[in-house]
Amino acid sequence: DRHTIHIGDITIHLEGFSEEELKLAEELIKRGIHLEEVKRILEELYR
């Protein structure tokens, strides 16, 4: 499954994450956390 996060003019595609995980990812990215770090956090929390 493919999910999309929109932040301003930026569109990020993250596959294989639930709606809850994507909301967390979006919040972290909006707070300035680097995408690679966001992915690592999600994997630690949900895998």
Rank of each mutant, 00 (worst) to 15 (best):
H34M: 10
A25K: 03
G32E: 03
E27R: 08
V38M: 07
D9Y: 01
K30V: 07
L24E: 03
E19W: 11
E36W: 02
E19C: 11
H13D: 11
A25C: 02
E15Y: 05
G16H: 07
I33L: 14
H13S: 14
H13A: 09
V38Y: 01
L35P: 11
G8T: 08
E20Y: 08
H34F: 03
L28T: 01
G8S: 08
E15V: 13
L14F: 12
D1P: 06
R40K: 10
D1S: 07
L24P: 01
I33M: 12
T4L: 02
H3E: 06
R40T: 03
H13V: 14
H13L: 09
F17K: 03
Y46F: 15
R40A: 06
D1M: 01
I12W: 00
D9V: 05
K30I: 09
G8F: 02
E44L: 03
L28H: 02
E19V: 12
H34D: 14
L28Q: 01
E36D: 12
L14K: 02
L28D: 00
I12C: 07
L42G: 00
G8N: 07
G32M: 12
I10C: 11
G16L: 08
E20F: 07
E37S: 04
E21W: 15
H3T: 12
K30C: 05
D1N: 11
E15H: 12
L22N: 08
L45Y: 14
H13C: 09
T11G: 06
R47T: 12
G8K: 07
L22E: 05
V38D: 00
R31L: 14
E27S: 09
E43Y: 02
I10P: 04
K23M: 09
G16K: 09
I12E: 03
H3G: 12
H3Y: 01
E37W: 08
L14Y: 05
R31H: 08
E43I: 03
I5R: 02
E20R: 04
E44K: 01
L14W: 09
E27N: 08
E36P: 08
T4E: 12
R40P: 00
Y46C: 15
E19T: 12
I12M: 07
L14M: 11
V38T: 01
H3R: 04
L24I: 11
I5T: 09
L42T: 00
R31Y: 06
L22M: 09
H3C: 04
R31E: 06
E20K: 10
S18M: 09
E27Q: 07
L14N: 02
T11C: 00
H3F: 02
E26H: 09
A25M: 09
G32H: 04
V38G: 00
R31M: 09
E44W: 04
E21L: 14
L28S: 01
E15A: 14
K39F: 13
L22D: 03
E36I: 06
I7D: 10
E26W: 07
R2H: 14
K23G: 06
I33G: 02
G32R: 02
E43H: 02
G32D: 03
E27T: 12
R47V: 14
L42V: 10
R2N: 14
E36K: 05
E44H: 01
E44D: 15
K39A: 07
L28W: 03
E19D: 15
I29H: 03
G32T: 06
H3L: 10
I29A: 02
